[in-house]
Computed example of a mutant assay.
Amino acid sequence: MKAVVITGQGGPGVLEVREVPTPEAGGDLIRVRVRACGVNRADLLQARGHYPAPPGVPVDIPGLEFAGEVEAVGPAVAGQVKVGDRVFGIVAGGAQAEFLVTHPRMVVAIPSNLDFEAAAAVPEVFITAHDALTTQGRLAPGERVLIHAAGSGVGTAAVQIARAMGCTVLGTSRTAEKLERARALGLDVAIVNADGAFADAVNEQTQGKGVEVVLDLIGGQALAGNLAVLAKRGRLVVVGLLSGSKAEIDLGVLLGKRIMVVGTTLRGRPLEEKIAAVRLFEAQVVPWLERGVVKPVVDSVFALEDVRDAYSRMASNEGFGKVILRL
């Protein structure tokens, strides 16, 4: 099969499309013929040597999400899926290839209103955002939530999920253009955050009440501002570290407001935990996708052979939504 292969450590130039062995669907696994897959920041980090694949997945084939058709099922797969089913889902690596193998409970039927390219823009960002907001952050309908990097893949998904829950959605971005586009997805309050000084604007917009939840894809430099805008018993959920992994924390603010801080990733979780997140996504978010309450946001689509251009687009930080590879 054809697959994207990381041949060294560095930027898009270390990526090549090569012929590699096709994986077998043995035991309780299924094989999916991938029709489209997403490009994520984690893939960039893996290519640079900063985010190695966990045990049990291809070490040199990136890709965390896919959309395609079930092509084969292992002998121990008991009727959960069948050959020909259109499915999408997340994996810990290996999705940027013509075929992959995965557990049948890690895939979800693609809604009929989505083609493969749109479907490939869903799993990683919507499962991450939904898990971070509802399971980790305990976001409740009607609460206020601040979403950093609202124009990113996870950001655009989180804005839509929070809106669907009836929350007041505040969002930051470095550019006014991305915030304006996010308004169409349900962003209520747009805050340009070019220099990290967002706290005053958030508190002004909330009349000093702050927000119950912050979804942080920035990390480092945002910590002090996040604590400043959280209401009492607020929850800070850290998903990304775009501005670095270290920051000084004022423990007095943390204690005084009784703030809960949660760090979360999906890739390295045990299979059972990932299955639980996928099934909650299936139960709560997929019906919204079917009704058009939430929708994939596709920035651009590239052929597999143009993978270097796709990674360059992701690295530019100029996109709005997801970068997709078509197979």
Score class of each variant (00 low, 15 high):
139 L>Y: 15
114 L>V: 00
1 M>K: 13
275 I>T: 10
93 G>T: 01
69 E>G: 10
46 Q>P: 05
194 A>N: 02
12 P>L: 08
155 G>P: 03
120 A>W: 08
41 R>P: 06
153 G>H: 06
79 G>M: 12
214 V>T: 01
9 Q>F: 05
81 V>N: 10
55 P>R: 00
221 Q>M: 06
158 A>G: 05
183 R>S: 04
273 E>V: 06
157 A>R: 04
317 N>T: 04
108 V>M: 11
38 G>S: 01
16 E>T: 10
167 C>L: 07
189 V>T: 03
318 E>F: 09
111 P>S: 09
186 G>R: 11
59 V>F: 03
186 G>N: 08
41 R>N: 14
103 H>W: 11
36 A>C: 14
124 E>H: 12
16 E>G: 02
130 H>Q: 07
98 E>P: 10
144 R>F: 03
293 V>H: 07
257 K>A: 11
203 N>R: 13
292 G>S: 02
147 I>F: 03
325 L>T: 01
78 A>L: 11
127 I>R: 01
138 R>I: 09
87 V>P: 04
278 V>A: 11
187 L>R: 00
71 E>V: 03
47 A>H: 04
301 V>Q: 13
88 F>Y: 15
191 I>G: 03
301 V>L: 08
236 L>M: 09
4 V>T: 15
148 H>S: 06
220 G>K: 05
155 G>V: 00
79 G>C: 12
23 P>M: 07
92 A>C: 10
4 V>P: 07
326 R>Q: 13
1 M>P: 09
241 L>M: 12
307 V>A: 05
253 V>K: 15
247 A>G: 02
202 V>F: 07
281 F>Y: 15
292 G>M: 07
166 G>K: 11
1 M>C: 09
101 V>I: 15
199 A>N: 05
136 Q>L: 03
124 E>S: 07
162 A>I: 10
134 T>N: 10
54 P>R: 01
47 A>F: 00
277 A>Q: 13
99 F>M: 06
274 K>N: 14
215 L>Q: 09
8 G>F: 10
19 E>Q: 12
87 V>M: 12
18 R>V: 01
273 E>N: 11
219 G>Y: 00
